[in-house]
Design a protein around this nucleic acid. Structure first.
Lengths: 230, 230
DNA sequence: TGAGCGTATTTGTATAGACAACCACGATGG
DNA sequence: CCATCGTGGTTGTCTATACAAATACGCTCA
């Protein structure tokens, strides 16, 4: 077995037993000295841990044991911001764009609607602690573009309720995981080694049951954990 | 921008335009000479392609192009289903191990049980079309080891129902995504560029509500999609 | 003919050294 | 008191060399 693999295994064990989230590992040259290997070999070992998602590198700072994922309950009809503010994390929403466009063929087929159905598409970025964590494309039905342009921050669903009296129920939700695209890496400020969770959510009006929103969210997989209650 | 990144980008383009799956790249020393870099730098570039799932290494043979670039567009909703048996795919369960052990501290704290609670741990591998797709660790409470050893294939829950009359309700389910470990890559026969979905499920007895099973499943992220109905 | 061996080729691992890029933090100066 | 600069420490990248391990393939020999 390769030296770097055995070192990686040992470091994994030590991290699990002796470190907590956010701790910095000893500097590489020190670990290299301890294991009696070249720094390159030790880096190769740490690469394994980074690949496992156990450690993150910070140039000029050190190698950090990653934090535990944030819990995000899915079953609650409440929306995203509600769940996170409960945890006391500073949450911020940045609107990246807002415009009206036709639904498009793909979504049209999925939602069984005409392709030229007008929707207002709002792209937002959710930041936790000023770090981007989720990118969302909201597709909103039966809303006014000019009105929606006035949405700038906070909870979109609260804005919709105040503007239109819309009250939403969560419909079918689909989750999948994949690696981020190049653009998403930049927008989420992550490397290409961190997977993302892609979630498609439907929201229906509480009154009529009509489709109100189809949202596609791309979240950092290393930050979130999703729970489904029976 | 780092040299190895620019080389990786160029190689990516060349692979897309000039290679088909199965082709071997030129040997590393040759590519290194062509790009006027050290072989290590070139290897670092190829590492990127391996990480992307574009290339596989074969010691003593060469670096092979795996497949055409992956299209991450959500435009193909047809592809993945969470219910695969419905699709008529040959589904198989292989038992990797079955033994009794104490619950352990981590799970004990999570489940609020004594750490020395005896559980029967069954490790299985779900195969679709004879390809491994999911690894599962079943932690079973109040069952007999000898009896459980007789489980060899099929549905575990059906086996439990026939053996003990246990009927299960799904309890809290937690989903997260991460990159596979070294071992999981081997067991699932995937490269290191494909994320996995890790799901923790609780099952309770329909009668008493007592915890019957705690299951941890690791699934190939490129094969599954999960849906949550309201 | 066929099995086995040896050799060339290719990737895998490890070492060593050098410098760049980046960050935290204290010292300095206004 | 605050902004700025510098410096030391840490990770990031690149080069150079050497040998190990695995494979393919031709050659030899029975």
């Amino acid at each position: 077995m390769a030296i770097y693999l055995t070192i990686a295994t040992q470091l994994r064990d030590e991290i699990r037993s002796q470190y907590t989230h956010g701790d910095l590992l000893p500097p590489e040259h020190q670990l290299a000295k301890r294991f009696n290997v070249n720094r390159h070999t030790l880096r190769r070992a740490v690469d394994e841990l980074v690949h496992d998602g156990l450690v993150r590198r910070f140039q000029g700072v050190g190698n950090q044991v990653v934090s535990t994922p944030i819990d995000y309950a899915l079953d609650h009809p409440s929306c995203f911001s509600h769940n996170l503010s409960k945890m006391g994390l500073p949450l911020d929403t940045e609107v990246l764009g807002c415009r009206q466009e036709p639904l498009g063929e793909v979504l049209a087929e999925r939602l069984q609607l005409p392709p030229d159905t007008p929707v207002v598409v709002i792209r937002t970025c959710r930041c936790i602690d000023d770090k981007p964590s989720t990118l969302i494309r909201h597709h909103l039905f039966n809303v006014d573009l000019q009105q929606m342009r006035r949405f700038s921050s906070g909870s979109l669903h609260r804005f919709l309720e105040q503007s239109y009296g819309f009250q939403a129920n969560r419909g079918t939700t689909r989750l999948r995981t994949r690696m981020p695209t190049f653009d998403e890496c930049g927008q989420l400020a992550i490397g290409r080694g961190i997977p993302v969770m892609e979630i498609h959510s439907r929201y229906h009006l509480k009154e009529s049951g009509a489709l109100m929103e189809y949202a596609i969210s791309i979240s950092r997989g290393d930050l979130f954990e999703y729970s489904v209650e029976p």
